[in-house]
């Protein structure tokens, strides 16, 4: 105990240094979002807040006829709908694998798990060729449809069903005459609640942050998600220096939804971990 006490101040100092490294870039982003184009260069400090945040936001959202708002809307569409349908699909497969015996069940699960290891570039490039043969590249579908599938989601769904849906409940409902699908929808899904939220948030953040698939699929900038839009703007500082402030403020706006999602996720994890501690 003595040794531990003596180490505690050292521990605190080291931890503060570590936190400074991880917090600094995001802090710099917040401070820089308040600066004008000129102040970014003349006053590059970490503490020099300026007063141009509202002006920068106004310029961001009015640039190129509200292009940025369009990108945000696209990201919400791809990530929101993709994660919602994707979570349901993952939950259904995870539930079937956990609670039913059927031929090829283990093979199905292992194949889906192996999908976690497949490099996105390996999928994105042939997907582009396949979609272009169907004439579907440069469309909402080319980004939305492949995003529906999440191997990690199936794995998490199975773990969640194993842990939170008791067989007795299924048997009882089955004896009462409920159909298998009804049991899944009315009994299993609500019991999987926290697991479903985790799957949804993971997939939401994954689609929101995705870059390669939209880069490969989309030509039309009105279909861009916000990541691809910011990337395109960031290539144009030299031609138009005022883009720099818009890219920074836009980066901040594009990051807020995922930060919020992860704060929610951590809250769920905390309750999950503490429940595990009580049971274990």
């Amino acid at each position: 105990m003595m040794a531990l006490r003596r180490l505690q101040p050292v521990n605190t100092i080291v931890l503060l240094g570590i936190c400074a490294y991880f917090a600094m870039p995001l802090w710099w982003l917040v401070v820089s979002a308040t600066k004008t184009q000129g102040e970014l260069v003349t006053d590059a400090g970490l503490w020099s807040f300026s007063s141009h945040l509202v002006e920068n936001l106004a310029r961001l959202f009015s640039r190129n006829d509200g292009q940025f708002l369009r990108w945000l809307f696209n990201s919400v569409l791809y990530a929101g709908i993709g994660a919602l349908i994707g979570t349901l699909l993952s939950a259904a497969v995870g539930y079937a694998i956990s609670k039913y015996e059927f031929p090829g069940r283990t093979a199905l699960f292992n194949t889906i798990l192996a999908g976690v290891l497949v490099p996105p570039a390996t999928l994105a490039l042939p997907l582009f060729l396949m979609f272009s043969q169907l004439g579907l590249t440069n469309s909402v579908w080319s980004v939305l449809l492949p995003s529906l599938i999440s191997p990690l989601g199936v794995y998490l769904a199975r773990v969640s069903v194993d842990a939170s849906v008791p067989n007795e409940l299924i048997e009882a409902a089955s004896i009462d005459g409920a159909s298998g699908l009804r049991i899944f929808a009315v009994i299993a899904l609500p019991l999987m609640g926290p697991g479903l939220v985790t799957i949804f948030l993971f997939q939401f953040v994954g689609i929101w942050n995705n870059f390669l698939l939209p880069l490969v699929m989309l030509n039309d900038s009105t279909l861009y998600p916000v990541t691809l839009g910011l990337y395109n703007w960031s290539g144009g500082y030299i031609q138009d220096p005022t883009l720099a402030t818009s890219v920074l403020v836009g980066s901040l706006v594009a990051t807020l939804p995922v930060i919020v999602a992860f704060v929610m996720l951590q809250r769920f994890w905390n309750t999950g971990l503490s429940q595990g501690a009580v049971k274990g």
Partner: peptide, 10 residues
């Protein structure tokens, strides 16, 4: 949680 593109920009 930060998009990789944003991390690289910052």
């Amino acid at each position: 949680a930060v998009p990789a593109v944003v991390g690289a920009i910052v």
